[in-house]
Each structure stands twice: as structure tokens, then as C-alpha cells.
Design a binder for these strands. Sequence first.
DNA 1: CGGTGCGACTGTTCTAGAACTCTGCGGCCC
DNA 2: GGGCCGCAGAGTTCTAGAACAGTCGCACCG
Lengths: 246, 246
Amino acid sequence: MARVNGRVPRYLQIAEAFRERIRGGALSAGARLDNQRALAREFGVTLMTLRQALELLERDGLIARRHGLGTFVASPSIDYDILNLRTFAGDLSAKGEAVETRFLASEFRQPDRRVAQGLRLRRGEAVFVLDRLRLVKGHPMSYQRSFLPAGIGEEVAKADLATTPLRNVLRYKLGIEVTRARETIFAVTLRSREARELGCRAGAPAFRSERVSWGGAGAPIVYDRVFIPGDRFWISRELTYEGVRP
Amino acid sequence: MARVNGRVPRYLQIAEAFRERIRGGALSAGARLDNQRALAREFGVTLMTLRQALELLERDGLIARRHGLGTFVASPSIDYDILNLRTFAGDLSAKGEAVETRFLASEFRQPDRRVAQGLRLRRGEAVFVLDRLRLVKGHPMSYQRSFLPAGIGEEVAKADLATTPLRNVLRYKLGIEVTRARETIFAVTLRSREARELGCRAGAPAFRSERVSWGGAGAPIVYDRVFIPGDRFWISRELTYEGVRP
DNA sequence: CGGTGCGACTGTTCTAGAACTCTGCGGCCC
DNA sequence: GGGCCGCAGAGTTCTAGAACAGTCGCACCG
């Protein structure tokens, strides 16, 4: 939560305090919080500031505010809103959340049909497979398996993948900049391998995102396959119907 | 955008004004908005209120704010792609397939919390529930449950729902045109009721789409809850990384 | 010529209230 | 008994600033 430079805003501190209370059980699901004015007094802060904290918590799905009724602790499932699709399976950091990436494993292997086709590989060409877990505030958020063409993979394998983001390896070690991607999102149930890492039961519903990214030269760079449990994410978007008269 | 009862908050009006400017092209992708203080003056409102509007727009992915730099209209490649998806759970016919809609059942009932909130209903207000099955080439594609406010529902109930598409009932019998919608997509597993109708086993992975549609007058018209088995549909989209840097 | 500090500009956080709306409940009136 | 009304309590919207914090360019100094 700490900033690179300078103090932590009061409203973030307050939000964190509530997260602590909810995690620690001091506030259990369904409990009603004190009214906003009382909470503002308790934290020695204005109503506006307190509300800013509550807004954050609501957006994270930790609490629910009901006009005229009160503010309640939401059900325990942790939902992190992914809103504006942006990079669905990619940079959650855009939301301002600290995202930690845990390196799991890597190896060279034969790709499956889908990956081979996506990366435009010849038959028999191997790929470098990289398994990672992404965590937000310590909670596993997605299980990510990346496939790289062997040529690129060999260079990437030399880097310290436990500490360097793949994107930075590509950018600074290989000079490759991803400029375009195509992503397809499926609804699936988790198999035991992924479920175990994500802390779900096998068979739990999840999104599976498959993404091919291309570099400036037009060559496929990486194939990402990401699993995101259905209780942690959703896709939300705005639609307008103008000039689409049937 | 209008509330059932009472005025529309200023910050929502302002957000709508910006949506209009962006949709209409008055503000194109990458353009920098005036600084917040100037915009606040322009709308005759405080900085706080203006910021509330910007926050909304940012959450919807329409703009990006950068500390010390300014506020920019987000890149269209992403947002307009989202718009192009049109109705995820709606007109599959856009794919060029003949879609058949089978009427299952309808009744008046008390809505659950989510629906009540989406339609901005007061407590105790009933909704008209309409269950349908959509088939492509005779195969069930989605299970659709629509909720309409009682007032609209009473009119709709008089129509022959087995033969007339709901959209046409709204358009020609009630003169209601849907102009905007907000859709959220979850990953879930099917429960037996939906699974049976869709010809899946219970527990099969599926998308669940929840959508609120608003009419031209700004009032919520219909809440759709759609189940689409994961083996029959997917979301696919193109991403470009060109950033918002001016 | 190069760095470095400062200043202008921009978004961010926060104060201290006031007025408003929504919900539930209970009493009053028919 | 049933409906209406108003009140209390809770969340919501908004004002009018003040102070803080990134970002960038430019003038100044070495």
C-alpha cells in the first residue's frame, strides 16, 4: 500500500483498516457498519474522505452500501472488478492495485495444436512454457501459462524470471515491443492443477483467456493462456445503440 | 439517466455530457480535456463534483487521468471494440445465423436484490419475469430470463410473447427504444434448471450475462439475465497498444 | 555543453459543513 | 384491519475552498 514516495492517503489507510477488520473477522459477512458520520468521527476524518474509502471497498466488492439502510459487509467471496476490459488478463496494475507475480515453473515442450497455430509454428517446433501465478494483495487472482517460440524462449530463459516481468525481458533484453493482440475468452471449469494453485476446488467456474500478441514486425511473440476463477472477476461494459438500426 | 423519482445528480449529468461529446466525436481519442478547474467552472460546479463525474468515466474506461499531465480520452481501439461487441448475449443473429426464440414461461414476481437495484425499483415493487430459450439451428444457445418493471410488464404481458420478439413489443406497442445498456459477464456453473433446458449437465461451465437496458428517456427498461454454456460461445476481441500518450 | 533547480500546470487529497433522498417503522385515521 | 403520513436514521450530493504531489520545460549555473 505504501507509495514509492511520500505518505499514504488517509482514505487508503481507512480502506486498509476495514480490509483488516473483515479479514480478521472483526467484521463478518452481513454485519452492518456504523453509520458514515460515526465512522468519520472514529477515524477523525470528514464524511467525504470516509466515503472515498467506502467507495473503494465497494468497488472491490468487500462491502455493499444501501441508501437509507446502512453499509454491510459483503459475502466473503473476493471479487476484484476488472472493469473496462483493457487487458483482461493483463495489467491489473492499471487499477492501482499492487500485483505480485509468482514464478512457478518453466520448460521447453511441444505445444498443443492451438498454440502452434497461434504462434504459426512448424510441426515439431518446440516452445518455451512459463507458468506464473498472479496475486493481488496476496490472493491468487489468475494462473497464467505463457508460450514463447523457441528462439525467443531461449533468450527469455536466461533472464531471472522470478524477479523480472516477462514484458520487461522482451522489451529491454530483446527489444521486442508488443503492439497488437487478439484475445478470446472462454467459460470453463478448472482442472485440479490450476484449481490447486488458485485455491479453488476442481470444477469451479472460471474464465479462460487465450491471447496471441504480435510484435512490431508482425511476428507472433507470445501465446498466453490465463485462468481466472469466476468468483474473482467479471467483465463489465457499456453498450450504446445508435446508428445500428436493423 | 433520469431517476424514478426526483432530479438527476449533477455529476451524472456531467458524465453524460462527456459521453455525448466522445460518442459524437467532439472529443476524439487521445484528446486532452481541459484541466479540472476549468471544467468545473464550465459546468458551474465544484472541483469535487466534477471529479466525481470523471471518476465515473474513468471507471467505464472512457477517459484516463494522469497525475500532473492531464485527462485524456481513452484509445478507441479498445473502447469501440467493446461497443462493437454489441449485445454479447443478445442478437446472435448478427453472426448471420437464424435464431429461433422459444417462449418458456412468464409471471409476476418479487425481484431479487440485483434486479431491483438494476431497475431502480422501490422495495416491494414486483417485476414481470419472462423466460425464453434461444436456439440456433435447433440447438439451444442461451437461456434468457428478462425482468421488466411491473408497469411495462403489464403491457408486455398482453402481447403474444410466443411469436413477437420482446424488442418489437417494446418498440411498436410501447414506443420504447433501448438506447444504452450496461452488461456484466460472469463465469459460472449451470444449475439443474438452466442445464436441463440447455441440454447440458448440471455443473457445466457457462457465461452468465447480466444486463440493464435504458430507454431514451433514461429510465431502466429491462434487466436480462442470460446463461450461455461455455461450449457454445466465446468472446473474442482485438487489442492494440498505442496508449493514450498525446 | 550539461545538469539541476525552480516554477507553472495538472491531477489529488482533505476540510467542515449543509441540504437532500431513501428506507423502515410506528402511530393516526378511516 | 388497512392504508396513509410523518419522523428518525442512514446514505448521497454538493459547496468553496486550501494544501499536497507528480510532470515537464526552461532558465540558470557550473
